[in-house]
Amino acid sequence: MRKTIDKALEWVLVFLLSVLVLDVLWQVASRYILNSPSSYTDELAGYLLIWVGLLGAAYVAGKREHLAIDLLLQKSSPERKFKLEIFISVVVILFAITVMIVGGSWLVYTRFYLSVKSAALGMPLGAVYLVLPLSGILIAYFDIDNMYNMVKSNRKN
């Protein structure tokens, strides 16, 4: 399960970043090729960046590679280190659930309910914000999974 999600997420991210590069290159090219340059590329680029940024952040969270100050962790005994890491995971999960899942879902729901549209593409803004709860769910899932593995290996020792 975890492996499948990781793999799928990797492909989605590579795809999104590729589209992002092509979009901005097209913005430059269309100015020189077309008589009337495309008018949506800059809005699309912004939305793609939100997706790449937040989904990428979820992917990095799964790999536990977000920047942190781990002086205390390094100086701790294995026992205290284990407790601290559990605490850290809980804090991360708490943020993912409250802000990204709860806050993000309410944002998405209200955008759809009030039918807010993007300015240039005219697409529903709720679809753009959907990445918030999505990334939140992924972060929470990855951290719960990591925590489960930590507890398991701690029992063994």
């Binding site: 100015r31 008589n35 340059p37 008018s39 800059d42 809005e43 300015a119 240039a120 005219g122």
Partner: peptide, 28 residues
């Protein structure tokens, strides 16, 4: 005609500049 005119992010603004004959170009 043929002038690249910056537009705000707005569908009506893009349509307006195209109707007048300019090239609507999105720049933040």
């Amino acid at each position: 005609a043929g002038l690249k005119i910056r537009v705000m992010r707005s569908i009506t603004a893009v349509e307006m500049i195209r109707a007048l004959g300019g090239s609507a170009t999105p720049i933040s």
